[in-house]
Amino acid sequence: MAGWLRQHRGLIPYLFLLPGVLWLLVFFVLPMLAMASVATQEGTLGTGFRQTFNVGVFPEVLDRYAPHFLRSLEYALVVTLLTIGIGFPMAYTIAFRGGRYKNVLLLLVIMPFFTSFVIRTISWKFILADQGFVLGTLKDAGIVDEGFRILATPAAVISGITYNFLPFFVLPMYVALERIDYRLVEAATDLYASRLQAFLRVTLPLSIPGLFAGSLLTFIPAAGDYINAELLGGTRDTQMIGNVVQTLYIVNRDYPHAAAVSLILMVALLVGVVAYRRVLRGQELTV
């Protein structure tokens, strides 16, 4: 074996890749094929599913669940813009002004991960409840109307998703900003750029890789989220595509439609990512 490897040194990198490739084959490619296969079957749980290559299922679910698809993309887009708005200044401050508190601040950013995602969302439900201690206090004080509510509104769902995925944006953004040599900013101001111009001409373009990674890590899970929509929304008007898949699969046991919706979401996200990448292509993504 060792002798054989010595003669075929070029194969070593592929050997290193082998476990990962096998893993993806078993846990990604096969399920994908299975899902595509399920999507084109017909039948019910009672009578059994038969493979009929029913490709008509795709336009069917696309038409039926168009509002949910659109709502998911809309929520995910708003969430991503919000995380950029909140997370970029955070990452910037930690990277450039954090000083010796950098690690403490980063720890605070990932601190929420020490508690389960669902538990955290449920505690928000508790905090924001119509008669919970925030709104209850405000109502008692007469600051907001008795009928005012936060839960079960799009704002609640969007805030919840933003809160949950903020660290996924802040961490890659921080890494990208932290790598920027501060002397480049000094050089820009030395060359007659104001602080704003130095930011726009130097810091921002050099942080594009982090912006790209961070916004994708937020947008993609946000588009597929159903926990926040379920716990903080819970009405028909806040249902996202994730809730549709969950209902179809777990409640209705309608596996073909659930699989078809999932596939469409995946393809849509893939196309979106490629397009997004092209938009940022003009920038130096490799810096």
Binding site: R183, L184, A187, A188, D190, V202, Q283, V287
Partner: peptide, 12 residues
Amino acid sequence: NTVFQNYALFPH
């Protein structure tokens, strides 16, 4: 104007 120690050329 300044010539910086490690040049600080804009990589992008």
